[in-house]
Design a binder for these strands. Structure first.
Lengths: 217, 217
DNA sequence: CAAGATTTTTAGAAATGTCTAAAAAATTAT
DNA sequence: ATAATTTTTTAGACATTTCTAAAAATCTTG
């Protein structure tokens, strides 16, 4: 697979995470920051290679082969992110772009040795699960902070938005993976949430609350 | 710079290591395993970008900008090789191909952090010096084993040929970086060399002796 | 359910990097 | 120094990946 093909496979993977339907040409173009016509061309090529199911005017979805390939790219991306943060001391908002390049390095042996060197991490620095070498992902039960109920207590285990801006904002708030958060009160007026974090009362906006995943004990 | 441009820059760098003259179009084509016409095209492009001096029918050589760029690629290549061997337990004959890919990862910050993580190594797993962040290379005095004199004693500090085949052959012979070798006798008939290695007498061929660098105490 | 709006595909073009074949320049050898 | 050989460049083509503009299909809505 070329670099470009791998990027399209990843895009389709991310767009079809939850629902199992087809992904539209326009949705892929938006995700890739390219044009619908380019997507159509690439879908024909990927269908030829048997990594997507594609029918004119009906969008695309990954075949089993495509899903397996996507999982391998995601695995590489997340292992490299873990390496960058844990070994090279990058912060969690800096690693995505670099991992976007590293994820295309081909060697299987490299990635298995890296996995062992890192002591087989289960999640990346943003809490996202790292697929195993067969492409299997362990799903962890999690809810959005915004949908937690009053008096519920949870551990921060992930973020929905992992843009640098959001991650740096969380740093400023003192929110990081593993932190315990108690929901004190949800404000109906603006859907902001009053929480207890490290013994302090803090109010977080609806948008922020909608991008933090909690594991409820 | 694109991947392909970087590969051409590297090729010219390697071809003009010793002598300062221009490198011929055909020599570059041979090194790159491509055709002379492709080289001509690329030289025009690289001259435009001011990384090579190029005049029709007279070959090319790197500009200062080109040399600096080449040194950065070499630095990345050799740091990654060191990482692969020292941290991921690859053997010295396995790392070249993987480093060929890793050397194109762009982030400067990545490479400075990697350098620090590896504790600022001075040479790669084949004994070749790692340029510093400014592109400066520390030259070490060294001679080919084939040109050492009888009764001279030296430490293996590098190899001229770093192909997998040669490196694996050295493994079989028990020759690795840091080993002490004493030249016992040079056979005029076939230029083979009788050496003392770990207290054992061993004969090595002229070709082998011509690809091992020694530091004489 | 037909007209308008939107989405998707097709057609044609550009940029990159490569190649083959032929022409041009440089080198070598008689 | 001229002919033969080798090297290098040019010209034209092809594969990839992308784009714009126009056409075709699908969806939406009064």
């Amino acid at each position: 697979m070329t670099l470009s093909e791998e990027d399209y496979i990843k895009a389709i993977y991310h767009l079809s995470k939850d629902d199992k339907g087809n992904v539209s040409t326009n949705a892929i173009a938006a995700q890739m920051d390219s044009k619908a016509s380019s997507v159509t061309d690439m879908m024909k090529k990927l269908a030829e290679k048997d990594v997507v199911h594609y029918k004119k005017y009906q969008g695309a979805r990954l075949t089993d082969k495509g899903k397996s390939y996507a999982a391998k790219i995601i695995r590489k991306h997340r292992l490299w992110e873990f390496f960058l943060v844990e070994k090279l001391n990058f912060s969690w908002d800096e690693v995505h772009e670099i991992a976007e390049e590293l994820e295309h390095i081909k060697s299987e042996k490299l990635i298995e040795k890296l996995d062992a060197f890192l002591d087989f991490p289960r999640t990346d620095p943003h809490g996202d699960p790292i697929p195993d070498k067969h492409g299997n992902i362990t799903k962890v039960e999690k809810i959005l902070l915004s949908s937690a109920k009053n008096n519920e207590k949870g551990i921060v285990i992930g973020v929905k938005d992992s843009s640098s801006d959001f991650l740096r904002y969380l740093d400023k708030l003192g929110i990081s993976l593993g932190k315990e958060i108690t929901i004190l009160h949800k404000e109906p007026f603006d859907n902001s949430v009053m929480i207890n974090l490290d013994g302090e009362k803090t109010s977080i906006s609806a948008l922020t609350a909608n991008n933090i995943y909690l594991k409820i004990n």
